[in-house]
């Protein structure tokens, strides 16, 4: 019988190279300031720029589902960037971001998401799935803002 992790790996492999495009919405200056307060613990100056990780840290730009629509771990179905990982535990393992142009409040953001790689390992500590996702954030003119390669681990 195939394990949930192995099934997940097989499903993720099927999605490699498929790109999803989505319009996320406008960057709200209040959210930008709140992000800085959350990170820094103090009020930002009016002239402070958008934090370099603002775009790539937000899991969900919409409302998401109500409580009954969340997984047991609290994540929503769209919080894992479309990865078919409903039956496994998922955790973030880091990012590599390239800033092409610093986003500004008021910018309308679009995103293109694709799985670039998946690896399955079965070692002493059990099964492990490693997934790499590329997210390309742009503005509504098509100009790139930030490219992010993020690694997820699933057990």
């Amino acid at each position: 019988m195939t394990s949930p992790i192995r099934q997940c790996y097989d499903a993720v492999r099927e999605t490699i190279g498929q790109e999803r495009a989505e319009r996320l919405g406008r960057i709200d200056s209040r959210d930008v300031r709140r992000f800085t307060v959350a990170v820094r613990g103090e009020e930002p100056r009016p002239e402070d720029p958008v934090h370099p990780l603002f775009l790539t840290s937000i899991l969900h730009w919409g409302t998401g589902p109500g409580g009954s629509g969340l997984r047991p771990d609290g994540l929503g179905p769209d919080d894992t960037h479309g990865l078919p990982v409903d039956e496994v535990r998922v955790m973030g393992a880091g990012q590599e971001i390239v800033v092409h142009r610093r986003p500004e409040p008021g910018t309308v953001v679009t995103i293109h998401t694709s799985v670039t790689d998946a690896d399955y390992r079965h070692g002493r500590t059990g099964e492990l799935l490693i997934v790499r996702v590329r997210r390309r954030f742009g503005d509504d003119s098509g100009a790139d803002l930030v490219t992010c390669h993020e690694t997820f681990l699933a057990r």
């Binding site: 990170v39 820094r40 100056r45 002239e47 402070d48 720029p49 934090h51 370099p52 990780l53 790539t56 840290s57 955790m91 973030g92 393992a93 880091g94 990012q95 590599e96 971001i97 390239v98 800033v99 610093r102 690694t151």
Partner: peptide, 28 residues
């Protein structure tokens, strides 16, 4: 996970100032 990355960024901002521009940032 992302807050760890943000702390790395904050260390650089604290050192080089708020007007610092990030071209790349990565962490594991």
């Amino acid at each position: 996970s992302h807050l760890h990355g943000a702390f790395l960024a904050e260390a650089l901002v604290a050192w080089l100032g708020q007007d610092l521009l990030f071209r790349e940032l990565s962490w594991r």
